[in-house]
Amino acid sequence: MKFERYGIGIAKGMALTLKHLFRPPLTVQYPDEKLVVSKRIRGNELVWFPDRCTGCGTCTKACLQGNIILVTHRGEPNKFIVDKFELDSGRCIFCGLCVESCPYDALAMGLEYECAKYRRGETILDKDKLKLTDQHQPSAYYRPQFAAGLPKQSLLIYDKKDGGQKLNLFPLSKRKRGPGA
């Protein structure tokens, strides 16, 4: 430490931290307030459309973990019937290559991201768990046709006039983070 500049640099830095005291906090109190994730989120539970799946097995080849198990038998002329379509979300790395490779749009990434399980067996997603339901919706990753209905992602690139962050010292009251929050 030199006195040569009489601590002007220190004073400048401290002025900046003081300025930040009056800026909105970044903390999102997670279980109480949630951000809107990206429309293309590669969520934890994939969505499988049985009517569109032909059982071609491209997804199983595309998976770099060798994680997708597909068992078919020959049914109607020129058509495979899928007996078993299973993947272990505990082993999956959610790279999205299976979704990308599917030629019939029969597989999509899920929207959910809070999928912790108590037992390892529960992470295995079989045909029933992969089906589309009201709670189990596909994301728009590589499937832009699903993007329309999804909410806008909350971004940190805020602007006050866009209804962005405001200084609020009382944390649990409603606080918005981005224009679309």
């Binding site: 906090p25 903390t27 109190q29 010292l169 649990l172």
Partner: peptide
């Protein structure tokens, strides 16, 4: 310190 660092600091146990 939380406010200086754009955080909230502890706000769960008891009022604030």
């Amino acid at each position: 310190l939380g406010r200086f660092q754009l955080r909230l600091g502890p706000n769960r146990c008891g009022p604030e």
